[in-house]
Each structure stands twice: as C-alpha cells, then as structure tokens.
Design a protein around this nucleic acid. Structure first.
Length: 365
DNA sequence: AAATCGGGGCC
DNA sequence: GGCCCAGATTT
C-alpha cells in the first residue's frame, strides 16, 4: 500500500464520520451493544427500509426482551408479529436461531464474523453488522447503501448484483473501513447512502466528497450504480373458497413450503392457469370433501380479481363465498384444514392479501 | 449464475 | 410502471 492510497482512506473516513456526527438519525438499535437486539434489528431491516421496520423492531423488543423470550414463543406467535413485513423466511429463521442460541449456546451469541455466519438467516452483511456493532470487529458491511456509495465514489460500473461485482465491492469496502472505529464507520457509510448518496437525486451539491468522488467529477452519479435487470413478474391466479356455516365458522389451511407465504394461513385455495369465472362445484367438493348437497350457495365477493403485487409475482385473486348447510364442526375434511370462528381469524398470521379481505368483509360492526 | 422470497414508498 | 430497500438461501 502506498502513501497516497493510505492518505485517501483516512480522508474518506474522517469526512464520513464528520458528516455522520451531524446528520445521523437517532435510531433505537444504535443505543445498545446487546448482540441479541442488534441481531434482531438486522434481520428485520434486511431488504426493508428503516421506516417500515422500526415499528416491528419496537414490537419485538417489547414482547421478547431477551433471546430466551423469543425462543420460548411459538413459531405461530412470531409469524403473527411479523405479519405484513414480508420475506417470512426471515421470521422462521429468526425463531429457529433464537432457539439455537437460547438452548444450545446458553443464550450467548457467537462473538465473531465467521461463527455468526453459521446462524440460519445470517449472511455476509448481517454477520459483519453484528460483529462490528456488538464486538468491534473490523469487518466492513456491504449492503445496497454501501454498494451505491462506493460505486459512485470510486467510479465502479461493475453490476452490483453480479458475482464479480459482489466480490469487488466487498474487497473495496474492506480496504476503506476505519479499523480504529469499525462500529461507527459501518453505521456511517450506510447512513450516508440512505440519506445523502441516495438512489435518486443524490445531494451532490452539498457533498463532502465532491473533490474525490469519481461519479460527481464525471457527472455519472445518476448512472451509478449499475444493476443487472431482474426477472420478469409472472402472473398467478388464486381462487379462495370462503366457507361459512350456521355457526359463523370457516376453514383455513397453513401454507407449507416451498413457495410464498410459508407458515401463514389462508382459505382453501384453487389455483388456476388463467382467470376462472366460477369454480365448478366438483372442485369445491374435491377440495373440502363435502357432499354437493350440503353446499347451498356459491357467490363471488369481488367482481374483478383483487390484484396483489409481489416483487416477482402478480397475483389475481378471487374470493368465493360457499355457504354450507349446517355446522362445519364435526365434518371430517380430506385435507388438513382447521376450523376457526370468523371473528378469531385475526389471531392467525395471514398474508396481507388475506388480511385485507378479512378486514373489508368481516370487520364491520 | 439465476431464481426465489413481500410489501411499502417513491417517482 | 419501474426501482429501491441495513439480503439470504435455494436451484
């Protein structure tokens, strides 16, 4: 390493930390060294903006103050509290890891990057975050913010989501980290990416890095970082059967993997290749195991399909009311359905698509 | 290397 | 409509 390079690094860190001291947000997970709380915050914040994750963080810390509290909860409880945040494998892994740390490690989190990475749901980024924030290990975090800052500052146009780019940005990030204060440095570079060197209209006019930033000097800040296109969104058609009986019961099923919403509940589902006007009663019969005689009325709640957008799916959903003669309780179903009071559906963890339906149809006084 | 996995916010 | 977000895991 030559002298010029070293001087530049120190310059980078000093300017970054000076900016951070003035501009940083006051966020609750920055007031602790507890690896449990830091781990919890980092899982919640994966692919999630601070504004969206903050209320979930508060709920979880309040309900599960220690890793043992989280470990002693059921997976259904954890999923219910996670409901609406998305990427539900995070919640399942969170619960799994809590039990592992609580029972196998006696509540002691691993205290270094390599061992942290062995935990389920903890990858390179999260291991670096916990290791630096909780244990002052000088390992650089590399998230979307860091990649954006470095691609602009250093003028790197390697796609950030390519194999080569992922490796390159890790190397550059590790070279720039301030090993005398890895915790604050890591917080600072992410905060700088989130607030100042933001994706759209970065605040280059007031930037402490104007002199050194390759992107700014060449007017490329809007072109960087480069990212490979994502895969096309596919359509899926979900037809939900909302059974109602004489006792205000209905039946639901827990989704099992692989696929979306694993572990969450939904109504009996008929998925079709295309839009389907009306499911045939034989479908209903087959799905529920109920004799055709006991099905009284079939009606569609929504005229037009409800469109539910995911990052990689476009779901067109219809909800079909199926009135059953007599009580559902006591009927033996062909699949593993659970009977619940309609008013108790709010106790279950469900996808936002289902939650919206329940609220619009069943929550009226 | 590419696909999967959510939902909200912003333009 | 497209892109982004304190990414990890599976195929």
């Amino acid at each position: 390493m030559n002298y010029t390079c070293k001087k530049l690094e120190m310059n980078f860190s000093k300017r970054l930390l000076d900016w951070y001291k003035i501009e940083h947000r006051d966020l609750p997970w920055r007031h602790t060294n507890d690896p449990y709380v830091i781990w919890l915050s980092e899982i919640i914040l994966q692919q999630t903006q601070v504004k969206q994750g903050l209320p979930y963080f508060k709920k979880f810390v309040s309900k599960f103050p220690t890793v043992h509290d989280l470990a002693n909860a059921s997976e259904d409880e954890v999923l219910k509290l996670w409901q609406g945040l998305g990427y539900y494998s995070r919640a399942r892994n969170l619960h799994h890891t809590a039990r592992f740390v609580s029972k196998t490690l006696n509540g002691e989190f691993p205290n270094n990057f390599n061992e942290l990475k062995t935990l389920k749901g903890v990858g390179d980024y999260t291991a670096a975050a916990i290791a630096s924030f909780a244990f002052d290990e000088p390992v650089a975090v590399v998230d979307g913010n860091v990649q954006r800052v470095l691609s602009r500052y250093l003028g790197i146009n390697t796609p950030i989501n390519s194999t080569e780019g992922i490796k390159e940005f890790k190397t550059k990030a590790q070279k720039l980290i301030d090993i005398s204060n890895p915790s604050v440095y890591n917080q600072a570079i992410m905060e700088f990416g989130a607030l100042h060197c933001r994706p759209k209209s970065p605040k280059c006019m007031f930037c402490v890095f104007q002199q050194d930033c390759v992107a700014f000097q060449q007017g490329l800040q809007e072109e960087l970082p480069v990212k490979l296109k994502k895969t096309k969104v596919k359509k899926r058609y979900f037809n939900y059967l909302v059974l109602t009986d004489s006792e205000e019961n209905t039946i639901v099923q827990k989704r099992s993997g692989p696929g979306i919403w694993q572990g969450l509940y939904e109504f009996p589902l008929i998925e079709s290749e295309k839009e389907q006007d009306e499911p045939i009663s034989s479908d209903i019969n087959e799905l529920t195991g109920l004799p055709a005689k006991s099905i009284e009325v079939v009606k569609i709640y929504n005229d037009e399909p409800v469109i539910h957008l995911l990052s990689h799916r476009k779901i067109m959903a219809t909800f079909i009311e199926v009135k059953i003669n007599g009580p559902l309780s006591g009927i033996k179903f062909s699949k593993t359905y659970e009977i619940h009071k309609i008013k108790d559906l709010s106790q279950l963890a469900v996808p936002v698509l289902i939650q919206n339906f329940i609220e619009s149809e069943f929550s009226m006084a």
